[in-house]
Deep mutational scan, measured.
Amino acid sequence: TLATPAVRRLAMENNIKLSEVVGSGKDGRILKEDILNYLEKQTG
Rank of each mutant, 00 (worst) to 15 (best):
R8M: 12
N37Q: 15
I16P: 00
K17I: 11
L39E: 09
G25S: 04
V21A: 03
Q42P: 13
K26I: 08
T4L: 01
K26D: 12
K17L: 09
K17H: 09
R8D: 02
R29Q: 15
E20S: 11
K26E: 15
G25H: 01
Q42K: 14
E20L: 08
A3T: 12
A6H: 09
S19E: 14
G44Q: 15
I16M: 04
P5T: 13
T4C: 09
E20N: 13
T43R: 15
Q42M: 10
G25R: 02
N37E: 12
E40T: 12
L10R: 03
N15W: 01
G25W: 00
T43W: 07
T4M: 02
E40M: 10
E20M: 09
L2E: 10
L39Y: 07
G44V: 11
Q42S: 14
N37G: 13
K32H: 01
L39F: 07
G44R: 14
L36S: 11
E40R: 14
K17G: 06
S24K: 05
D27H: 15
R8C: 08
L18K: 02
N15Q: 09
R29V: 09
T43G: 15
L39N: 09
M12I: 04
E33M: 09
N37P: 08
A3R: 02
Q42W: 07
G28A: 03
S19C: 10
E33D: 10
D27S: 07
A3D: 06
D34R: 00
E20D: 15
L31E: 12
S24R: 05
N37F: 05
L18W: 03
Y38W: 08
T43I: 05
I35D: 03
E40D: 14
E40Q: 12
V22N: 11
K17C: 07
K26P: 12
D34G: 01
I35Q: 06
P5V: 13
I30D: 02
K32L: 10
L10C: 04
G28C: 02
L18G: 03
V7C: 01
P5M: 12
N14L: 05
Y38C: 15
P5F: 10
L39W: 06
T1R: 02
I16V: 12
L18R: 02
L2V: 10
E40P: 11
R8V: 12
T4D: 14
K32V: 10
I16S: 02
M12A: 14
K26C: 07
L36W: 09
N37C: 06
K32S: 09
D34S: 00
D27P: 01
E20Y: 05
V21S: 02
K32F: 07
L2P: 07
G23Q: 02
I30T: 02
L36P: 06
I16T: 03
E20H: 11
N37I: 06
G25E: 02
K41E: 12
A6T: 11
E33F: 04
K17Q: 12
T1C: 06
K17N: 13
P5D: 15
L10H: 00
E20V: 06
E40S: 13
K32P: 14
Q42H: 14
K17V: 09
A3Q: 04
I16W: 00
N37K: 12
V7S: 06
V7H: 03
L18E: 04
T43Y: 04
T43E: 15
T4N: 11
N15A: 07
R9P: 00
G25V: 01
A6Y: 08
T4P: 03
T43H: 11
R8K: 15
K26A: 12
Q42L: 08
L10A: 04
T43P: 11
K32R: 14
P5I: 09
K32Y: 10
K41F: 07
L31T: 15
G25L: 00
I16R: 01
T43S: 13
S19F: 05
I30C: 02
E40G: 13
R8F: 06
L39A: 15
G44E: 15
G28V: 00
A6S: 12
G25Q: 03
T43A: 13
I30E: 03
V21T: 01
L10T: 04
G44N: 04
V21D: 03
V21H: 02
A6V: 08
K26R: 13
L10F: 13
